[in-house]
Design a protein around this nucleic acid. Structure first.
Lengths: 192, 192
DNA sequence: GAACCCAGTATAGCGGTGCTAGACATCCTG
DNA sequence: CAGGATGTCTAGCACCGCTATACTGGGTTC
């Protein structure tokens, strides 16, 4: 029983990932409106009910894509922070990387922040990748800064606001760099 | 022909508003998912096609509700700014009023910022109420500040980010005041 | 005053949605 | 090799946004 059931479980996990990546590719190619359960099923070459044996519903699929996105965003931010020439420029680098991510993968960003998902953010069971993203902002402040978490929250809020307001054309995309410089100048850690 | 047709036009305008307020009330009571064209038609006691004689589609109805929201937000922000004891506390008052509005009317705020609408924000034809909201932030900075518009954009972005991130439970709602104080302290106009 | 006309309304229906019950096949187990 | 569990598909439900078509009742004209 073990060998075959193990293989089945592998196949199942493989198909699980297949559904997630197919949903993401379809969304990035044609937008989330095009991601219907029928089209998704057709794309993975299974019938609709199979999707429901892997996920509780469409929202859960979107949530799985979003979770992937948080994982990628976390590494993206970490790379930017660690690649900064000096500690003082870490925040600026992370902020730029954040907006890059949001504009480069709009569909993914949409799944992470504006689409209805099954992701729970209630309390201690925050998904680790989401926490990892937040921690990248926190890490831009000195450890002895008692309010570094609060600062990180505000920075993240500002970046998210800039991302969605510029994506919907409510603020002009032209002065992106100036906004980022301003944000960095005003919200960065005060040097010791 | 004039008297009756004028009355008809009045009736029509009245019904136009009836649809908008019905959509808004339904959304605020049961969320936007519950606002379907059928339920909305039933609520205004007309049949579905009547909605389409007033609006291009559901998105346009949401857009009309959103436009109402921007008008209300503008006056709300103006009241807060003008009610500030001294010019130096205007920004703080406006920011507080903004978050109050977002948390007090979540469905309305959703229509204004996250739902798909027909509102055009492309270029010069920005809807006046939206421009009025933005101008309230600008007015919190001195007129000789050359970058007051840029500052206003960043403040608005931060507030919007705080509104949606706390509404979705990604940042804790507890430290709201501290975040606002921090935002005001760092982003306010530098005194002359 | 009667015939006409037309704006405005409702009925009924189209193609699509997310989701699921039941029939069916396929493979492991005893 | 039969029995049973596992897994998949077909078919369909209730609902969605939206619209073509039929109808009706008031205003206009002869």
């Amino acid at each position: 029983m073990s060998a075959t059931s193990e293989r089945r479980e592998r196949d199942r996990a493989h198909r699980h990932r297949l559904i997630i990546t197919a949903a993401r590719e379809l969304a990035e190619a044609e937008g989330w409106d095009a991601v219907t359960t029928r089209r998704l099923a057709e794309r993975v070459e299974y019938s609709q009910p199979v999707l429901y044996s892997h996920f509780d519903g469409k929202d859960a699929i979107v949530g799985a894509v979003a979770l992937d996105g948080f994982g990628e965003l976390a590494t993206h931010l970490r790379d930017a922070r660690q690649g900064a020439a000096e500690p003082g420029s870490a925040l600026r680098a992370v902020c730029g990387a954040y907006l890059d991510f949001a504009t480069a993968r709009p569909a993914l960003y949409q799944a992470m922040f504006t689409l209805p998902t099954d992701l729970k953010f209630a309390s201690a069971d925050t998904p680790p990748p989401l926490r990892a993203c937040f921690d990248e902002f926190v890490a831009c402040y000195r450890a002895d800064n008692e309010r570094r978490e609060l600062h990180a929250e505000v920075v993240w809020s500002a970046l998210h606001g800039m991302a969605v307001l510029s994506a919907s054309g409510r603020i002009p995309p032209s002065w992106r760099e100036e906004r980022l410089d301003f944000l960095d100048a005003r919200l960065a850690d005060t040097p010791a």
